[in-house]
Design a protein around this nucleic acid. Structure first.
Lengths: 356, 356
DNA sequence: CTGAAAGCGCTTACAG
DNA sequence: CTGAAAGCGCTTACAG
């Protein structure tokens, strides 16, 4: 049996409709001694209403504690003033283990929408059984921001279909190129990271990353470019799929150590992998930052608590939220915003030596 | 000028109404050769419609990619199928520094609502200029869950007013008792924590906490009870207001050390204070867990990354989300759910010695 | 500057 | 089992 449009509302059948009299714009009109249409105009700030009328309406509205029924307003106007924000998790991931970077980005996105007068409808999705993105068709939202883990390919494919059917969609984190996106300045961030390692005197710098994810691939490119410019050979250390990011970093580093490779720094494509790398080094009795410097990417809170605190490249969360919302609203209003990268900054901490 | 009901919608004026023809239930009716009311009944799962009609309607709906306009449905029924979730931050707090515990709880709440067929409208609020809670009056939600930092007293007062005016409100974290709430089993958690310290052989156990917050006060009571039962004297170490939790824990511990107090364990009322305590001990060259054991409360991710990893009492996030939503929906439907505590569990890690 | 009226797209008595 | 009709509460042409 198909459930594509109604199952959710069935559950609500039990709830009795709350039936005491609601205050409507007609009540306010009566109180203020004007027509209902004038109430609507006055409260909407229509400059055509006279100041005297306006203030009488305001007073009546306040006295009756009137609030516009947004469902009626939205039905009439077709605009919702709402953005849907979908957070894609790895299938099977628990909330406890979910990458805090995405939560922070979610929060920044909600805040950015709020600053622009928009509400945010939030949904965490694992898929494939709970994927849902028809918010625009249901008139619940004017557009859709999708944030999440790139590993969940099924989810990204689903949201490409949603966008293909005409919905406004902007994403962060898709491993594919078919959706409109906002991303960190990954290339510039990687340059900053490697530049910092070089200025600290590190030379044999390995880069732990995957090339499948565009974001990671971009970071790798920045790494390669900076190494080459310094006359150094890039050194790619791949990761194994099927592990958490941290475990991927740990295993990659442990393998390096066991193979007897000589390296003096690690640039990991994300903080979680960097934390795993630090654990592997600690397990092997290798001093950070003395023997080996470690730098990550993302600026997650956990990195600051690690021992030693992790040097990292930090995306500006607030800017990221702003850019996501601006790009989406640009699509909604037909004034496309330019594709801009989220600015990044170096956060030098103790997992790298002081610059020389 | 007052802006209590319309300012938000003014910003949306610029957006042109999207005007290509929407598929309505009338279109589906024509396609299926039935009346519009039958379409509505069939899609809503009304058992009165015949199987034959039902499947014809479904086929037509799918063919036309029809989705119910929820604004119209909500206007008609008065139900929204939506919960508003407000996250209260400390005034001036940045998203980057926001306690990850609340983000995880937010995520769990969204997931719990989703499981029950409800959407979640999320709003981060600092107050006092951006406090907003009239979701029910605007018919945007059937009820309200408020999660957040207890320090923001102005916000809690505001939401008490919202509840007093008849809205359904359930909260997590209010320092006051006037709102319906869900809390961790703080007393039981503290007993578990102190019991663990005792079983590890620690005896001079200080408790770093504030008594202003009910949650912390409950944890302190559990600590006192367990100490007394073991024939030991409780030892309350207060904190200074106006600092981050971590800094409060650090300062309290540093003061203890400087005063030459002899203690062999610290029970901190939250993980962030425990992390601060560990930092103070490290700064003083005191070994954890050898010289002093440390245990926190909350189970934040960052604790697991600390050196040594922090032993803690962990609330079951998923259960917390479920309980918040169940209590709220109980109020909405008039079937009040019993007040239940969120179960907690000990997470023994390396900041305490192995039990003997 | 203000009012009367239409209409957004549903759900749900009310008839049959 | 199905249909015709009312009405939820707004916004916005259209008149005046």
């Amino acid at each position: 049996m198909s459930t594509f449009m109604w199952d959710e509302r069935q559950n609500l059948k039990a709830a009795p409709a709350p039936r005491r009299h609601r205050v409507t714009s007609f009540d306010v009109a009566a109180e203020a001694g004007v027509s209902q249409s004038t109430v609507s105009r006055a409260l909407a700030g229509d400059p055509v209403v006279s100041e005297a009328t306006r203030s009488r309406v305001f007073a009546a509205a306040r006295k009756l504690d009137y609030h516009v029924d947004e469902n009626a307003a939205r039905l009439r106007t077709g605009r919702t003033g709402t953005i849907a924000v979908v957070v894609i998790m790895r299938p099977g991931d628990h909330i406890r283990d979910f990458n805090p970077f995405y939560f922070a980005l979610l929060g920044a996105t909600c805040a950015a929408a709020s600053r622009r007068g928009y509400e945010t409808l939030v949904s965490l999705q694992h898929g494939p059984e709970n994927l849902f993105g028809r918010y625009q068709e249901q008139r619940k939202a004017d557009g859709l921001i999708v944030i999440g883990a790139s590993v969940n390919v099924a989810a990204w494919e689903y949201f490409e279909d949603v966008a293909a059917s005409g919905a406004h969609v902007v994403c962060w984190g898709s491993p594919r190129e078919d959706l409109e996106w906002v991303r960190s300045d990954n290339h510039g961030g990687a340059r900053l990271a490697v530049g910092h390692l070089l200025s600290c005197g590190y030379r044999r710098i390995a880069c732990i990353t995957s090339l499948i994810q565009p974001q990671f691939a971009e970071r790798y490119e920045g790494y390669v470019a900076t190494m080459r410019e310094a006359g150094l050979e890039p050194w790619l250390v791949g990761i194994e799929e099927g592990y958490t990011r941290e475990e991927q970093g740990r295993r990659a580093t442990a393998a390096l150590v066991e193979a007897g490779q000589s390296f003096d720094a690690i640039f990991a494509a994300c903080d979680e992998m960097a934390l795993g790398a630090m654990r592997a080094l600690r397990d092997a009795g290798i001093d950070v930052p003395g023997d080996v410097g470690v730098i990550g990417f993302d600026g997650i809170r956990t990195g600051a608590q690690a021992t030693p605190p992790l040097t990292t490249i930090e995306a500006d969360f607030e800017a990221a939220g702003d850019l996501l919302v601006d790009r989406l609203l640009g699509m909604v209003t037909g004034n496309p915003a330019p594709q801009v990268r989220v600015p990044i900054a170096l956060r030098a901490r103790a997992s790298t030596r002081g610059a020389r």
